[in-house]
Write a protein that binds this DNA or RNA. Structure first.
Length: 263
DNA sequence: ACATTGACCTGAGAGC
DNA sequence: TGCTCTCAGGTCAATG
């Protein structure tokens, strides 16, 4: 679930719910998710404060609690946020619970515990420490920047799109969609892509991610012309009606249309 | 230095 | 029904 569009939806959700609410208590269920800090440290840094602003870089969500102090949330494969009032409405698999003075709670939910929670002084530091590439929806990430990002990569295009060090935000699902719309084979070698293909890829990337955010990252609300709802070998390509194929690329499973995305 | 693979967790769904 | 097996959108460390 949580690729860039999902995390952006979480960010907006946070901004329309918990923003400016005074934090009363913080509880951590799974210490495994805390990176480089204890529950006690986290609590002492959050208690009495409030989330004053939100930000995002790639798949990382930032919640600013004071000058030079941000709570960073990463959602792994299964994480999400839930803001609720009634105590007995606490979601199953809640790993961290922030309770506010107004009686509401913010649950960080992650059934698979693959996420990360930590504190950082700035977005810049986060980018440096995680060695993240540019956020793909940042205004500065234009065609020129995209081409520069591709320049030092010689692997397969699907892996390159998913590399957070090369560019931040794209995961397995959306990489398939972007490649489908650009009509490029997932295993195509980056250094063999011509100028036209790179242009198509860049435009598809921006278009797909913006559209996904527009529909609240709900796959069911994406156009039926998208591959996303046809990710199954039993499904047919929405464009040519040919069979969708499943392949393995760098250990991840990918779906594509062999006819529309020839090598 | 780079690309790829396995490990990390645990639930859901498929197959028997 | 219940058991076992495989797979899952994430990153990270180890390997080639």
């Amino acid at each position: 679930m949580p690729e860039l569009p999902d995390v952006e939806v979480f960010r907006r959700y946070l901004g329309s719910t918990a923003l400016h609410q005074t934090i009363d208590e913080v509880g951590v269920r799974s210490k495994r998710l805390l990176k480089g800090l204890s529950e006690r440290t986290l609590r002492s840094h959050l208690k009495g404060r409030s989330i004053q602003q939100t930000d995002r870089h790639g798949k990382y969500l930032l919640a600013g609690v004071k000058a030079n102090e941000w709570l960073v949330l990463h959602f792994g494969m299964t994480g999400f946020l839930k803001y609720f009032k009634n105590e007995n409405k606490e979601p199953e698999y809640t790993q961290m619970l922030i309770s506010f003075k107004n009686g509401f709670h913010l649950a960080y939910v992650a059934p698979r515990k693959l996420g990360q929670i930590f504190l950082i002084d700035s977005k810049k530091t986060l980018i440096e420490e995680k060695e993240l590439g540019p956020d793909v929806l940042d205004g500065d990430f234009d065609l020129q920047a995209f081409k520069e990002a591709l320049f030092r990569s010689r692997g397969m295009i699907k892996s390159t799109l998913m590399s957070q060090k090369i560019m931040a935000g794209i995961g397995n699902i959306y990489s398939d969609e972007i490649l489908f719309q650009a009509r490029i084979h997932p295993k195509a070698t980056v250094d063999r892509l011509d100028r036209d293909q790179r242009g198509r890829l860049f435009r598809a990337l921006k278009r797909v991610l913006r559209k996904a955010i527009e529909v609240q990252a709900d796959p069911q609300r994406l156009p039926s012309s998208y591959l996303i709802s046809h990710r199954d070998p039993e499904e047919r390509c929405p464009r040519c009606k040919g069979k969708v194929e499943k392949i393995e690329v760098s250990g991840r499973s990918g779906y594509y249309c062999p006819r529309c995305q020839s090598r």
